[in-house]
Design a protein around this nucleic acid. Structure first.
Lengths: 206, 206
DNA sequence: CTCTTGACCGAACACAGTGTTCGGTCGCAT
DNA sequence: ATGCGACCGAACACTGTGTTCGGTCAAGAG
């Protein structure tokens, strides 16, 4: 007997049906290129068919709604890059191309939310802080790997691990997030980015 | 008789003294890390010591004020960046590195405005359009120089001029736009950026 | 069947920010 | 002395955010 126990979902299950409705409404509204900033709460309410007070019962404010959205969209976005950092890089620059290709594809899949989070992070301190904290584990990983590589003499001593890790990460964030990279150019971009990343790390290796 | 003809500057000279006062007031207000978005016109008025109506007489809106600011800041940047791209890349690293460092210094000196323009361009279509149009000629210059260098065999044949130009430009834009870079680390950042830029161009030169 | 509870509604409100309007002041040139 | 243009300053319209609070409705408990 499938004990579905339907009505138990009354605001208990970690994410009520109504909350879900709001999230997908926002996605729908962002789809036509509307900026998150220029999207009034009122529009979201209409689209989701809920009352203002209900909205603010579920989300403390508009920013938190966006963060919730980002949390879901970026769950495994760094995975393939992290894996590369942990590897021994024996396949050289070539090994980086598929990593970048994956990143480009994944960013495209979540482009609406990523665009919005980057947009709001640019001026809202709360969202900015969230976004950086989301980025930090990745930054930490690449920094520590650069330090190891440097200690092992595998890369040039002029590499500044902390700064270099950030330059690389934010470059990818910026460039991969460029609006309107036509899919047919993915390969070229992945190659160009892989080359840049590789040279920033190994370009002046002994 | 020194015919100073003072009052001729009465709103005729391309940039009245008062307009200048507004511009520098904004810079002063941005200096402590305040986002342009969270800077009320009221604060600008107080800082510049002018009336609201006067402000709107000089600037159609807050966005145009920012654009004006960016116009001036980027003029300096483009100049030193162009100097970098046009300088003779044949006599090796010694003559070139100082020029690169100068260009990066120029970018960093204008970081307040760059941050602001980047911030607002993220959500305001007018500013976004301006920013892209401002960036395009520069991207074009970089691209064509990379092409020449490649044709002349001075840089690696794996360089993709169009994409590499963009990667370099957006990297600078992104990294300079980061908030919370402790001032005491400035030097390290400049060095790390210069190294990255250099390697992206010359890292795999023949 | 009545009573309670909690999810949701909806209208009003306080507040902050942008850009407009318009009458008024002041200095300067004719 | 008069007119003009730069500037002031207060009021206003408008848009958007987040809060408040009384009210509806359905479901479950006694």
């Amino acid at each position: 007997m499938p004990s579905v126990t339907r009505s138990v979902a009354r605001h208990k299950g970690r994410s009520s049906e109504l909350e879900q409705r709001v999230l997908s409404s926002v996605l729908r509204l962002l789809a036509d290129g509307t900026r998150y900033t220029e999207l009034p709460v009122q529009r979201i309410l209409e689209e989701a068919g809920i009352a203002r007070s209900t909205f603010y019962h579920y989300f403390p404010d508009k920013a938190q709604l966006l963060i919730k959205l980002a949390e879901l969209a970026t769950a495994d976005i760094w995975q393939s890059a992290e894996q590369w950092w942990r590897s021994d890089h024996s396949d050289g620059e070539t090994g980086l191309v598929p990593v970048l290709l994956t990143a480009i594809t994944q960013v495209r899949e979540n482009r609406l939310v990523l665009r919005a989070i980057r947009e709001v992070a640019a001026y809202d301190r709360t969202v900015a802080e969230y976004w950086i904290s989301r980025m930090t584990p990745y930054l930490e990983l690449s920094r520590s790997r650069l330090e190891e590589l440097r200690a092992a003499g595998k890369i040039g001593e002029w590499v500044d691990p902390a700064r270099t890790a950030q330059i690389m990460a934010w470059t990818m964030e910026r460039v991969v997030g460029l609006h309107h990279i036509p899919p047919e150019d993915d390969e070229r971009w992945a190659t160009a980015l892989a080359r840049s990343a590789w040279l920033i790390i190994y370009g002046d290796a002994p």
